[in-house]
Design a protein around this nucleic acid. Structure first.
Lengths: 364, 364
DNA sequence: CTGTTAGCGCATTCAG
DNA sequence: CTGAATGCGCTAACAG
């Protein structure tokens, strides 16, 4: 409406001419005010004001200086997950805190799951990368390595030359698995996706005879075959936990969610909780998934922990009122840790977790 | 660990030399593969591979091309609110969707509330800005105007030359206010901050005699004095609604929260709901605040809507199970709309809202 | 304290 | 289809 006429950017040279000084004096007036006389600085400011000079061009400055002032974040998901997934959001809040502390902008690289994601990474004007959990075979990782920039990967995959931050997911899964599977006869798992295909499915653990699986069940879930390290380690931990009760992984019914949403978990939990294999214990890889299962259990008239024991992961805000046994870890702190490391300010913060036992399981 | 030796970036000229072609052939090989012979392209790719050339330097490319491929987002809050505040998060999800669609990176400018925020904006290498609600007197707006880049402001303030996107907050507040204040005798409001000071306080509307206010109450809340447009319009709408019942704004007790969190709302609601002025109707500016009030009401043994009618804003996921009357609007769509407009792809999407009546108020 | 020189790495002309 | 020249806008490094 206001007819803004694609105003050409005023250049430093024009300001210099208008102020009657050299370009360098203008540059110093902005970049190192102390190195310029008060009078020169005043003249520069005046000319800049008059011409509408908005200050040094950020792109030109960063080309010259060799740094952009941007921290890049790459997700193993569609960009919108940064704001849609509660776990990613907490993690990024920590990243954002560190960025703000350092005056660095936070650049979210627009990945969508398409092959062109690689180009988006290559074209990102950033000084370092933080990667939020992706698959071992995600080509984006190679693109990041190719840039030669510092990078920190959270959750996985591990990559030579890149820093890595993650809790000990296997140990934590073992701990919470022992709790939720204690006394169970038909254990179940609500899992994150196994690989980039993100196919949702229900199947027993491998080693189980496929014909024993419910109708339409897939070949079987092999923890070691998951290309998402976090999923892999948690499945292994649950397997360890069930084994420690003398059970076999093939007895464990695994429902794989394509996404971390309570909605999908509700539907899958209904399948876990009905039929001849109706689970009496479910270990979920997130509180969101667990809360979905909890709603389904309520709908089916199942008591928790009487008919069903249940565990989540992350100790989100909703876990306390829901009485959900869970693994507490601060994704926010981990995000901050990743960002500090990427920016070359490593802190001693180790990644810790602990088990929180609540009413959804039976242990004291 | 891996002793990555701050590897200097390979340059296009080096690749050209190694491939035995000119720099331009390399440039074309990346930027316009069609304009180069298959053979030349293959030689370039080979040389690039061998030297570890990661592709054209993004900063240099953007300096030359005159565009960065980044959409800047500026919040009227600390950067972390992007991930901490549910409303901002929904809005940004919409922005992110559009960015992903266009292959644009989403750059969150690191504002913290300090005066240096202006510099962070000036230094941002972006092609356009989207601003998430800030105060009329936030100097950051002037800095954005000074860049001469396209900018879209969501919520406020209005600024000559910048696009503006917002629902009709005053009309919506009037609609929900009539609903929640119907039949009330002691109306209350749970408000967002009035200005950049973000001071939490409790006071009656202006025109009320100060001595009538509860102990420690502040001078009085004047809707017109709020420098946040969204807060101002909603307060005005609530005032209109109460006036339409024949009431006077000075009878309305306003609790101002410093932040959009259920936690703070719980505490302030306790003050609204106890003492001689105990409110029997509360209009809250967000579902988060309303849910905080709902918890306090439960704790105090108040029935809703019997002892207290309550309304929220935004129709978040939690509003349905809570039976909360609220204003539905899609912040996500609004975010997308802002982003499209900023990127020069305006869509016809008008910003709409509607009232959703549920059990927390008494109307049919 | 100020100015000069010399590019940062690339892509848009326009020739060949 | 390929190449040579030119400068995007700025600042490090050095002189003066």
């Amino acid at each position: 409406m206001s007819g803004r006429t694609a105003r050409r950017r005023v250049t430093m040279a024009e300001v210099a001419r208008a102020a009657g000084v050299s370009v360098m004096t203008v540059s110093y007036a902005y970049g190192r005010p102390g190195r310029v006389s008060d009078e020169a600085r005043a003249r520069v400011r005046e000319a800049a004001e008059r011409l509408g000079y908005p200050g040094p061009h950020p792109g030109a400055r960063s080309l010259r200086r060799g740094r952009t002032g941007n921290l890049g974040v790459v997700l193993g998901e569609h960009l919108t997950y940064a704001f849609d997934d509660p776990q990613a959001t907490r993690f990024l809040s920590g990243v954002a805190q560190v960025c703000a502390d350092h005056g660095m902008a936070l650049t979210l690289v627009p990945v969508t799951g398409a092959p062109s994601d690689v180009d988006r990474v290559t074209e990102a004007a950033v000084d370092a990368f933080v990667v939020w959990t992706t698959a071992d075979d995600d080509p984006v990782i190679d693109a990041i390595v190719a840039t030669g920039l510092p990078a920190v990967i959270h959750g996985g995959p591990l990559r030579e030359g890149l820093s890595f931050v993650a809790a000990d997911d296997r140990a934590a899964a073992t701990a919470v698995g022992r709790e939720v599977f204690a006394g169970a006869r038909r254990p179940g798992v609500l899992s994150f996706p196994l690989d980039r295909g993100r196919i949702s499915q229900i199947a027993f653990g491998t080693q189980g005879s496929p014909e024993a699986a419910p109708d339409g069940a897939s070949p079987g879930v092999d923890p070691d075959a998951s290309t998402f390290r976090v999923t892999r380690q948690r499945l292994r931990g649950y397997r360890d936990a069930w084994a420690s009760t003398g059970g076999d992984w093939s007895q464990v019914l695994v429902a794989v969610c394509s996404t971390n949403s309570a909605h999908e978990a509700e539907a899958l939990a209904a399948e876990l909780l009905t039929g001849p294999y109706a689970c009496d214990a479910i270990a979920a890889m997130s509180d969101e998934l667990a809360l979905g299962a909890l709603r389904t259990a309520a709908r089916l008239g199942l008591s928790v922990p009487g008919d069903l024991t249940l565990s989540g992961w992350d100790d989100s805000d909703a876990a306390t009122p829901a009485g959900l046994t869970t693994i507490a870890q601060s994704l926010r702190d981990q995000g901050a840790h990743c960002a500090r490391t990427a920016l070359g300010h490593p802190a001693g913060t180790d990644v810790s977790w602990h088990l929180i036992s609540r009413a959804s399981t039976r242990r004291p």
